[in-house]
Each structure stands twice: as C-alpha cells, then as structure tokens.
Design a protein around this nucleic acid. Structure first.
Lengths: 240, 240
DNA sequence: CGATAGTTTGACACAGCTCAATAGGCGTGG
DNA sequence: CCACGCCTATTGAGCTGTGTCAAACTATCG
C-alpha cells in the first residue's frame, strides 16, 4: 500500500534523509513531499547559536536531523531553566502561534531541515495525518515535561543528575536496553547546561558526578564521555 | 453559518452545558453532538476522590464542567509532585494511550461530563477539527508545564508561592486584568496540595503566605479566601 | 463542646548555594 | 615543541534557605 514511497517521486533532497521515516515527513504522500521539498532547506548550525529568541517571530518550522537543541526560559535577572531538549527526528517550532515564549539554541552542532510556516500549515489542512503526528509529538513532549517536573520539584541533587544521565543514555541508545552491558555515550551538554536543566548550580552537578564516579556507578573520560557500569544501580540512584 | 447550533438538534443534556462552546464539544456538528450525548454522562465527584490511578486503564474521556482536578506523580517512597491542574472547560484523559502514568484526583468537588474512549476516537476520525482542538489544548498544557518548570527549577519559595497565587487569580477571573482593584478568590487547594505543586513543604508554603500577608501584599480570611491588594507588587514578588 | 483535620509558628539541621582557588583541555602563536 | 591564554570543570570552606520535627493554634462538624 505504501511501498510506492520507496520508489519514484521522492525528492532528491529527501531520499537520503536520515529522519524521513521517523519524522513528520513520514506521513506525506510523494507529491506532498515534492511540494514541501521545493521550499525546504538543510543547514548546519554551530554550537551555541540561537535559533529563535524569546518573543521573536517564528518564520520557520524545522526537523532536527542531528545534534541536540535546547529550549530554555530566562528570568529578568538572568536565572535560566532549560525546559526541553530536542533530538532527531523531533519537530521544532510552536504551531499556531506567531511568537515563541522560549529560547531555542543549539546545544551541540545541529543540522536542520527547515520549511516556511505557511507551507507546513497549508499541508496540515490537506493532510490530517500530519496534524495527528504533530499531536503525537506534542503529547510526547508533554509527558517528558511532566516527568521532569517531578525531577525538578522533588528529587535530590544526586537523583537529578542520575536521572539526567539515564535520559541521555536512553536517547543515545534507542535500541531497547537489551544491552545489559556497560553503556557509554557522550554528554551533549556542558556542565552549565546540565545545571540549567536540573535546576542546580554547576558546582553541585560537578560534585554529584564525582560522587557517582567515586561510588563506581559511572566513569567519565575527557569530561564528556560517560560509561555506565551498572545500569540498575544508576536507576536506583535516580529514584526510579 | 453556525447559528443553527443554537437552535434545533442540540441534545437536552448539552443545551444547558456550561462549557459546550468553550470545550471540545464546541467543534461538533449537531448530529455528532447527538451521537456523543447518547453515550455521555454527567457526574459529580467529591473532593479527594481518585479518578484514574497510575497505570490504570483509561476507559473514559471527560470534560471538566466545574471544580479543579489535579494531575500528580508519586515516587516509590511517597514524594509527590502535582504536574498539572485542570479547570473547566479542560479535557481530561490521555489520548492514544491505554495507560495513564499519572494520578488524577479531584482537588475540590468536581463535575464532569464523560464519554467512552471509543466514541471520542471514532468522532475524531470523522471530524479533524476535533483533533485540531485537542492539539490546541495539548499545546496549552505544554506551555503551562514549561512555565512551571521554570518556577520549580529556578524560583525561590516566595516567588513560587506568589506565582501560584497569580495563576489561581488569573483562572478565577478569566476576564482580563481589567480590574486593577483588589482581586479576591478562594484557593481551590489545601496547603498540602500547594506544597506538592510547588515542590515545597507545607510549612514553607505557610511561612511564605504569612510573609506576603505581613508585607501587605495579600490578605487571607478563613485560610482559603485570598485578596490581592496590589497586583503589581505580587507580580514583582513572583519574579515575573 | 470535644474531636479531627488543617494550619501556623518555632528551633534546629542539613542540602545545596556562594565565593574563591585550583586544575585540566585545547587552540594559537612564537 | 613549549608557553600562553582561555574556557571548562573540579574542589574547598563557609553560609543560607528550606526541610524536619514538634508543639500550639484554628476551623469545622458532629
């Protein structure tokens, strides 16, 4: 029924796309994909670059192809809280609202595929399945946000750090936790970002990491590369 | 174009419904409304009653007609965090998922209009506008959750309490803040719930309330009835 | 009027913050 | 290749805001 999607009519731009099947585009018919591809562009964004500032107009929607994007809120006096992390193949952009009330920034080098607002909104009308997929992603983000509220409001510093490591680990190894062995991955965030994500200070994050390391639950090389020796123990530390 | 909605074909049950125009039902055609009303029931739930437990099956979707519903998460050792409050005319229930991972409980006496899952999901297929409305509500909840993440992660105890009061005030007086005068309303939550919402203890909530009272920013009668003397000052306390 | 649940207040402890100093990683330029 | 500077991370010492525990107070209701 859908095997035609693999044959003719797929735009060149999309043919090699890493996220085409998992992302929003996956629900589009070949001709719709062609229409969208005409107006879409891929680009690389370097670490630290701001994609959308607070209260700026959103002109584009994007798919994250690789890298990590952080969504954050800032108070007048500079206190900052990261309220979401987007990985491939997440969708970026707040539908049905001209202004964003959050800051969007590349946490690592990021590559994106962007479309103008109007093109996406037009497609949404003619293809309800697109809106359905969008609803699914939004519900997923809502679930994540609520999980994180529990972490922010009720967990201790160690539990927060352990929860963060687990979240990153799960994202780095999407294939179920079949691998009982030691997991390892690179942290996509620097300490300051981790602190802003967990509602802690840099120093506290650092102390909890060394504590976990001292207890042999994890090991760290080069400040960024983490190996989880015993997954179950880390989960226990996270208060799961 | 839509004035027929006020005339014939509206089910008796819905005719007097307080939230029909604002809630999800607002997008339904008369005949769809009739179909839905056949399977829907209104009920009152008393304060403290649990609507859906963690990991229970969701058999029904509901509209909140009045009262306040709290959504919460609980850790194994009993620590609890409220992750959302639902007021009329919010929709209750997690679409596209058989299990809920949060607890749903009446914070006050609540009246609901409930429909079986299947009826709503059937309607969703034939009326894309319904799914659109659902997406809007989900996006709103996501925005609220993220606002709250900033509060949980980065605000001090006074700021948290002040932010909470403002949120309740805005919900009690949906008509814009035209009223510069002193606002007053009843707190729908007891101190323990406020604490669970703010990631604080009961004692700290109480202390911050008396502090705000001592500073003349608010006044409280009967533990539940709050009057905001100076809205701008309360907003300043909230770190807005 | 007593019983119960909810709230406030107080005294003290401790987790996490602040400030400050040290150490490591890495690119640039001599 | 080393020296230097910059950025990031770690470690330490002391402080403070919030939690803990306990007691007193208040509202509500039978």
């Amino acid at each position: 029924m859908r095997k035609d999607i693999h044959s003719d009519g797929i735009p060149v731009l999309c043919e090699s796309c890493e996220v085409r099947h998992r992302g929003l585009c996956g629900v589009l018919e070949p001709d719709q994909l062609v229409a969208l591809a005409k107006t879409s562009t891929k680009h690389k964004i370097s670490e630290g670059a701001e994609l959308i500032g607070d209260a700026e107009r959103i002109e584009n929607y994007s798919n994250v192809l690789s890298g990590v994007v952080k969504l954050s809120k800032v108070m007048a006096d500079g206190r900052q809280q990261i309220v979401g992390l987007q990985f491939a193949p997440d969708f970026l952009g707040r539908p049905f609202r001209a202004e964003s009330d959050i800051n969007v920034e590349a946490a690592t080098e990021v590559s994106l595929c962007s479309f103008p607002r109007s093109a996406v909104e037009r497609l949404m009308k003619e293809q309800p399945e697109l809106e359905h997929r969008l609803l699914q992603q939004t519900l997923k983000e809502l679930d994540e946000a609520r999980d994180w509220m529990l972490t922010l409001g009720r967990k201790t510093a160690v539990e927060k750090v352990a929860s963060f490591l687990l979240m990153i680990a799960r994202n780095s190894h999407p294939n179920g936790q079949a691998g009982r062995q030691s997991l390892s991955f690179d942290l996509p965030l620097k300490r300051a970002d981790i602190a802003d994500f967990l509602g802690l200070t840099i120093e506290t994050v650092s102390r909890q990491l060394t504590k976990l390391r001292a207890e042999g639950v994890i090991s760290i090389e080069n400040n960024r590369h983490v190996t989880i020796g015993n997954l179950a123990r880390l989960e226990a530390c996270a208060g799961a």
